[in-house]
């Protein structure tokens, strides 16, 4: 009996070891290192000492927190737009499309993700630039007389972000909608509900866990995106990740960069926590 339980617990630890090792080596230890780094700053003598100066700098210097607020706000907008576009698409794929087509649609959605993000973004740039494909056709068709620069503005950047994060919204939505009993929708119509009231009262409450997990993923991806804002947003779109990059690479101030990294982690967690509170959900439910 005891031998058996001993063996069992040994087996348990044996299986758990790689997970713990992975977590420890690749996540926890580097983060502790970064945390220590973020809490050190140079004093006037040029020596590294313990200090919260790096964190204070974020709040003291408007460029930093304004950039963060901007990044967070745009990520929220991206999330909302992604949700609004993905919701009907997911509903169509999960509920309307025939079984045969369903797989094809999902593959179509997956297709852009077989190339790297860089290639995807350059694809958009080729389409939208002043000498790009879209301008070429608009000129040919006589709709415009001088080419329009469609890149390097916030709308284009958000479109790019939406494009690169749509899959991560559509997939959880499809899976949650597949579990929706068709007769619930029919019952709603039968009882006098229209498209809007059925969506609002039946489909959205049912899809809530999928919506929340999709939103969290898309929000985090947008917040942590570097390429798309940088390349498509152009000159006016400083993204917070770029600031972290600049601290590490251009200013050689790793301590400041680490502090920014932790602030990003902290503040984004806070935003998600707040979002869950507002929609009266718990993370456990969403993940389960």
């Amino acid at each position: 009996m005891t031998a058996f339980t001993k063996k069992k617990s040994l087996l348990f630890w044996l299986f758990l070891a790689p997970v713990i090792g992975w977590l420890g080596l690749l996540i926890i230890i580097p983060h502790i290192d970064l945390l220590i780094m973020s809490l050190k700053a140079e004093n006037d003598m040029g020596d590294l000492v313990w200090s919260t100066a790096n964190y204070m700098e974020f709040f003291r210097e408007p460029i930093y927190w304004v950039t963060f607020v901007r990044t967070a706000l745009y990520s929220v907008i991206t999330t909302v737009v992604t949700l609004m576009i993905s919701f009907p698409i997911a509903f169509y794929i999960a509920k309307v499309a025939s079984n045969k087509l369903r797989g094809a649609y999902v593959i179509l959605l997956l297709l852009p993700f077989w190339v790297s993000e860089l290639v995807r973004v350059y694809g958009w740039m080729i389409l939208l630039r002043e000498s790009g494909v879209l301008n070429f056709f608009l000129l040919k068709l006589g709709i415009i007389t001088t080419p329009i620069e469609m890149l390097y503005n916030d709308a284009t950047m958000i479109m790019g972000l939406v494009y690169s994060s749509m899959l991560f919204m559509v997939v959880p939505l499809i899976s949650v909608m597949e579990s929706l009993d068709d007769s619930l929708v029919e019952a709603s119509f039968d009882l006098g509900g229209g498209v809007i009231s059925t969506t609002w009262n039946i489909i959205i409450p049912h899809a809530k866990p999928g919506i929340t997990s999709g939103c969290i993923v898309v929000f985090m991806l947008s917040l942590g995106n570097y390429l798309t804002p940088n390349l498509m947003g152009g000159k006016n779109s400083l993204w917070f990740t770029e600031q972290i990059y600049n601290q590490f690479i251009a200013s050689f101030n790793w301590n400041q960069g680490a502090a920014f990294g932790f602030l990003l982690l902290l503040l984004s967690s806070l935003i998600i926590w707040f979002g869950l509170k507002v929609t009266k959900q718990t993370l456990g439910k969403v993940v389960a």
Binding site: D181, S183, L184, E186, A187, S188, F189, D190, L191, G192, G193, G194, N201, I202
Partner: peptide
């Protein structure tokens, strides 16, 4: 369906 004066009790009831 939502304009008809009929209502349906579904096989699996379809309570929300």
């Amino acid at each position: 369906p939502n304009k008809r004066p009929v209502n349906l009790v579904f096989q699996h009831l379809a309570l929300f």
